[in-house]
Amino acid sequence: MAGEIDVVQTLATTVAAGTPVLYATLGEILTERSGVLNLGLEGMMLVGGMAGFAATAVTGNVFIGVLVSLAAGAALALIHAFFACSIGVNQVVSGLSLTLVGTGIAAYFGRSLVGQPAADSFQTIKIPVLSDLPVVGPILFSQNLFVYFSFLLVPALYFFIYRTRPGLNLRAVGENPATADAQGISVVGTRYLYTMLGGALVGMGGASISLGSNPNWQENITAGRGWIAVGLVIFALWNPWRALVGAYLFGGLEALQFSLQVAGVPISSYFLRMLPYLLTIAALVFTQWRLKDQAGRASSAAPSGLGLFYLRRERG
C-alpha cells in the first residue's frame, strides 16, 4: 500500500482530468484551422458550463443541458466571429475581451445556481465486457459519457480535417484565404461557421465539468483550464490526435502530483504543482524547435492565415 503508486487508478484519473481540456483544445483547433484566433476559451467554457448547468436545473435533463452549453459556447463565439471576421479588429484583443465578458456573464447569471445540487449529471458508466478488461477496462471504459464521446470525437475530427472536402476547404481558408476565395469558398462564412462550431465544443468542455466531473456550479469552476487549452493547441500542432496526447499529459501530471504525495515520495508538492505548467511551456518550446526542423510540412504548422483579417480586394 504505502510507497506504491496505483498506476491504473492514476491513469483513470488522468483521462477524467484531461477530458475538459481536451474538448476546449479540440474546439480551438477547429477555430484556428479556419484562421481565426480566439483566446476567449476560458470565458466560453465558463458560459457553457453555467448555461448547461442552468438548463439541466430547469429541465431536469442533462442532454438538454449539453445542447444548451453547445449553443451558449457558439453564441459567445459568434460575437468574436463578428469582430474578427466582419470588422477585422485585433483578434487577440477581441478574444481577451471575450474571456472577461464570458467570466462576468457566467458569474452573474450563475449566482442563483450556487449551492444547488445538480438536477442530473453524467455518472460513471461501466461499459459491459470492456470495463472488465484488465488495465484498459478501469482506465478507458469506466468513465462518463463526456469521456466516451471524446474518444469518438478525436478520430472524427481528424478524419474531417484531413480527409474530407469540407475539411480541405477549412484548411484552405486558414492557410491562404485569398486562394480559397478565388476557389469560390466563402472565407467569411467558413470562418463564422468554424468559430461557432469551435466555440460550441469549448462550451461543452465547460459542461463536462459542471455536469460531469464536478456536478455543481461555482464561479470560475474552470480555474484556468481554458488558458491551458490555448497552449495545448500549439503543442498539438493543430492536430486532434496530438491534442489528445497533450490533454492527457496535462491530466496525467495533475493526477500524478497527488499519487506521488499519497505514496509518500519525497518531492516538494510545490514542484509537483508546477509540473503541468512547466510541461505546457516545455511543449511550446519543443514544438517551435521541431517546426524549424520540419519546415515545409504545412499540415503540421500553424495555419498561415491565423489571426489575420481577410478582406476581398475589389477590382477597380
Partner: peptide, 9 residues
Amino acid sequence: TAAKSLLNA
C-alpha cells in the same frame, strides 16, 4: 483529483 487519489489509497 486530489480527493480521488486519497480514495484510491
